[in-house]
Nucleic acid binder design. Sequence first.
DNA 1: ATAAGTTTGTGAAGAATTTCACAAGCCTTG
DNA 2: CAAGGCTTGTGAAATTCTTCACAAACTTAT
Lengths: 200, 200
Amino acid sequence: MYLRYLEELDGRGQHTASSDELATLFGTTPAQVRKDLSSFGSFGKRGLGYPVHELSAQLRAILGLGREWRVVIIGAGKIGAALANYHGFTDRGFRVVGVYDNNPAKIGQKWGEELVRDMVDLERDVKRDDALIAVLAIPADDAQAVVDRIIKAGIRAILNFAPAQLQVPSHISVKTVNMAMELEGLSFALTNMGADKGAA
Amino acid sequence: MYLRYLEELDGRGQHTASSDELATLFGTTPAQVRKDLSSFGSFGKRGLGYPVHELSAQLRAILGLGREWRVVIIGAGKIGAALANYHGFTDRGFRVVGVYDNNPAKIGQKWGEELVRDMVDLERDVKRDDALIAVLAIPADDAQAVVDRIIKAGIRAILNFAPAQLQVPSHISVKTVNMAMELEGLSFALTNMGADKGAA
DNA sequence: ATAAGTTTGTGAAGAATTTCACAAGCCTTG
DNA sequence: CAAGGCTTGTGAAATTCTTCACAAACTTAT
């Protein structure tokens, strides 16, 4: 989150930003900003603030965005397409090296610059292309079986759009995004407005 | 999250579930489960556990899922399409009452069961259809201007896919989903593996 | 009906996170 | 170069969240 805003400021040519400015920018407190950043190092200059451009670079390094990550997308549906077309994705060094589906009607079709491949080749390709990240955009019922396969093939992180909790060994990172759940959160907020002390 | 698993158990015909069972099911502790649920009421039976079907119903009520929420989708791209096609969306009572874009090439096109409408009609339609929730899937630069417009028209909650922090009055709920950020989190986890005590 | 075996709900303890507050440090001005 | 004005970095206090532990309560078996 810090990185996103810092890059925006950097793009506008702003050279420094104080913790106060950053805090109001994304809805937190100056103390929080300073504590967060201090846990990775001492980036600011007293009396002046944080150097926007330099701090951006530092954060990119911390996040491991200096290198290229090879990504496979599993499930040639709308979600995968949205991701692959998304600039903020390729701009960060995430390169799609394969798109997979098990629907014969989709296999072989053009899909952006790639062709949709058959899921049976998944393991082979993951190993050959050295992909470490997988985007999972398939039905919930199929998710766990596919996860087991790709982990064996060498995948180490999964961005999961299937509405299912995945069982993985502890050395595998999983981030699950569930759009229905996000909307349910909004429904809750709308339903309980006023009862609470104002949900933001 | 609780609701998702309880409905799954319910579908399998399971009548009760203990906090212990629920905890292992979605990776937390029994104490956490009991504390969480107890903050909304006293649903369990001692010696037996929680009644799966009844608790599901209670949670749906708490989340405000008993009613129909009318939703407008702004931006007739892949993300909006993915959402509208998604069952977990309509099944929860979220009904799409309009899809909007400002691209003349898209306006009037068929889009699921709806036609893509012109953004200039957004305010009028939101008021007329009494939509309270908006899904924002448009470029970051346009996001704030659109948000200002739809809030004036009566929108009270926003699911935001634009990579931008939205400024809204405190009575408006916003949930921002940023796919690039999720991937950056995975990149960080991969980069810092072993240094930490094993990121889950 | 009683006893044995579970499991909840919840105060209290413990851990983690956030906020406070201020010394130390940097820049600018005169 | 010294003084005044900001802003960071960080211990300590305050708050919030999680875990512990156990009495109360329910079910089942005999």
